[in-house]
Design a protein around this nucleic acid. Structure first.
Lengths: 244, 244
DNA sequence: ACGATGATGTCAGCACCGTTGACATCGGCG
DNA sequence: CGCCGATGTCAACGGTGCTGACATCATCGT
């Protein structure tokens, strides 16, 4: 499969001394990744081009090919880095606290890196990072009392809501940028009550602050999970052993 | 603002006779839109280029500029068309039925047009179509008993979940394509139970069928909304008058 | 009937994109 | 010292959205 790599890319030192710096060029996988992330965070995904990256690094636009097979591999490494920001659940926390914290820190990665959210969401689910996220989510669901054979639906609901809300926020400046939110509020307040009575009535409450709204929806979902888990599975909170 | 349009684009006949066909060229806004949607549905968003569109229509790649100011306007018209597929809520239905149907048909648009889902999500919220969707959602929430000043959070939860799940599905072939789903199931079943005990335990239930999983999450969310609405607002189901 | 007019499609070409093959450089090692 | 491999550069390819100049051609007022 990977026996004949791109001869251009010879990424890692052939397991020489590990900590040894490849003092070869001014370029460096990590430097490239840092700059790339900065560009994406600042100016969005479309601005993250190899030419821009090269300009930013004072290097030719094709120099990156010595460190990454192609742009896709660069993206992959980029999001791998981001997901380390999701902390391991606290073994002493309740399942609900842990699930809540998981959903929040996960979502915050999307919020903090809007430009890369699309790339994160497209990253396939067989990466080690995502294995951990799944493991943690499933563990807490089991602790909540969800039967093992129903975990999939609950897990999917959480995944969809978390990643989905992250994507929506990243794609919807009118939900996240305060000035645009205010503008939208004004638009809805000025709606014709004859045509849109309900929206006009609730106009003042529409377009709430982004994180506050997400936290609300997380608690909403956790309420439902709790109710279902109690109804369908073992009600009490169990320790980490999930052998039931 | 629009006083001096792109001289190239002279889109609508100057309100001549309305139903009169502009028998001018072989091209036509509607024909372009149909072909564009077909390309996006078949081969994805990246395949939808002006050159491909022109080739498909037997026309130069720049001919579309006579009917759309630019590609963004074409996209905008494209998604405007798609949202008509969300049917108006049944006045005789309960709020829960109506909200459920709304969330399902909305989501199905994303599922049925994966290639355009990204474009749909980026579409700003001040389009007439979205006004209607907001109006309908808010109306049902009011009927559910949610107080007007808390509608925003509930509405945002529904919007995030619906659009978010649609985006996730569109971005995650490993969740939607049956063969890839099975492959993923196998990967999780073969996980090291020492390292990922919970995930290994629930492996068989992970990666459920896409629509079934979404329906589950919808009911989950509606459960929570119902519980909260009853707790915080007027419990009973009211008729369409939202003047409370 | 006819010529003006304006709508529509075509063409060449711009700047930008990711990517490749050939080349220059340069440092460390035998 | 001299090799050689790793790294960066250069020119170029085919792709993208888009523009200005041009050609065509139906319609309409005279």
């Amino acid at each position: 499969m990977l026996e004949h790599m791109n001869p251009r890319t010879r990424p890692s030192p052939p397991s020489h001394n590990e900590a040894e710096q490849r003092r070869t060029g001014r370029l460096d996988r990590q430097t490239i990744l840092d700059t790339a992330r900065e560009i994406a965070d600042t100016d969005g995904l479309r601005a993250l081009t190899l030419r821009r990256l090269g300009r930013e690094l004072g290097v030719d636009s094709t120099a990156m090919y010595r460190h990454f097979r192609d742009k896709a591999e660069l993206f992959s490494a980029l999001v791998d880095e981001l997901f380390v920001a999701v902390p391991q659940p606290d073994p002493n926390g309740t399942w609900r606290e842990n699930l809540r914290n998981l959903m929040i820190s996960w979502w915050r990665i999307y919020r903090d890196h809007e430009g890369l959210s699309e790339v994160m969401a497209r990253q396939p689910d067989d990466e080690p990072r995502l294995f951990h996220l799944t493991e943690w989510t499933v563990r807490e669901l089991l602790r909540a009392g969800v039967p093992a054979n129903e975990i999939g639906h609950f897990h999917q609901a959480i995944y969809n809501h978390t990643v989905g809300s992250g994507l929506v926020a990243a794609f919807s400046p009118w939900l996240t940028t305060p000035e645009i939110r205010d503008e939208q509020k004004r638009i809805y307040a000025a709606l014709d009550p004859g045509q849109f009575p309900s929206a006009a009535l609730a106009a003042k409450s529409l377009y709430p602050e982004t994180e506050e709204a997400y936290l609300f929806s997380v608690d909403l979902l956790l309420d439902a999970i709790e109710a279902r888990a109690v109804r369908e599975g073992t009600p009490q909170d169990r320790r980490t052993d999930a052998a039931g």
